[in-house]
C-alpha cells in the first residue's frame, strides 16, 4: 500500500486506470451515491497542444463498484458503452485539479456527454465522487 500512495501514475495509462478503479472501489461515498447505477462509460481524452493523441478509458460501473476498467491502447477498438464523457486533455487536468465541476464542465462546453442525460442528472453525486476519486490518484500529467 505504501507503494500505491507514493507512485505517480501517468494520466492516462494502464497504471492510472488500475489505481483509479481501486480507489473508486474503496470510496464509500461513491458506493453510496452510485448504489443504483448500472452502466458503462468511456472517458475520451482528446488531444490538445500538450497531449498529442486521443485516449480512451473504459469503465464498467455497477451498483457503486467498478467491475472492470481498462485503458484502451492505440489501435485497439474502443468498446461501445452507454455513456461517453469527452474533453480535451487540458480540461481533464483542470477537472481533476478541482478547477472544473463535472456538470458545469458540460454546461460550459468543456466536456461533452453522450448518453441519457436524464439518467446522469439523477446520479450527479456519483459523478462528482468519480471526479473526487480521480483527484486522489497521485497523477503525473
Amino acid at each position: 500500500m505504501a507503494f500505491l500512495s507514493t507512485f505517480m501514475a501517468k494520466f492516462p495509462s494502464d497504471e492510472w486506470v488500475k489505481l483509479y478503479c481501486e480507489k473508486l472501489n474503496s470510496n464509500q461515498k461513491y458506493a453510496d451515491a452510485g448504489k443504483n447505477w448500472e452502466g458503462d462509460i468511456v472517458f475520451v481524452v482528446e488531444k490538445d497542444e500538450t497531449h498529442p493523441q486521443d485516449d480512451h478509458i473504459y469503465l464498467d460501473l455497477y451498483h457503486g463498484k467498478c467491475r472492470s476498467a481498462r485503458y484502451i491502447h492505440s489501435g485497439e477498438e474502443v468498446p461501445k458503452s452507454e455513456f461517453s464523457y469527452k474533453g480535451k486533455f487540458g480540461n481533464w487536468k483542470k477537472l481533476m485539479d478541482g478547477q472544473i465541476d463535472p456538470i458545469q464542465g458540460i454546461l460550459t462546453g468543456k466536456f461533452k456527454l453522450d448518453g441519457s442525460k436524464m439518467k446522469i442528472m439523477r446520479f450527479t453525486s456519483a459523478a462528482k465522487e468519480m471526479v473526487n476519486t480521480a483527484s486522489t490518484v497521485e497523477t503525473e500529467f
Binding site: K29, D32, A33, I103, M121, R122, F123, T124, S125, K128
Partner: peptide
C-alpha cells in the same frame, strides 16, 4: 432518502451529504 439523493440539490449544497 432515495429521491432526495438523486436531486441535483445534493450536488450544489455547500456541505457534502450521503444517504445517512
Amino acid at each position: 432518502v432515495e429521491l432526495a439523493s438523486q436531486s441535483t440539490g445534493v450536488l450544489t449544497n455547500p456541505e457534502e451529504s450521503d444517504s445517512k
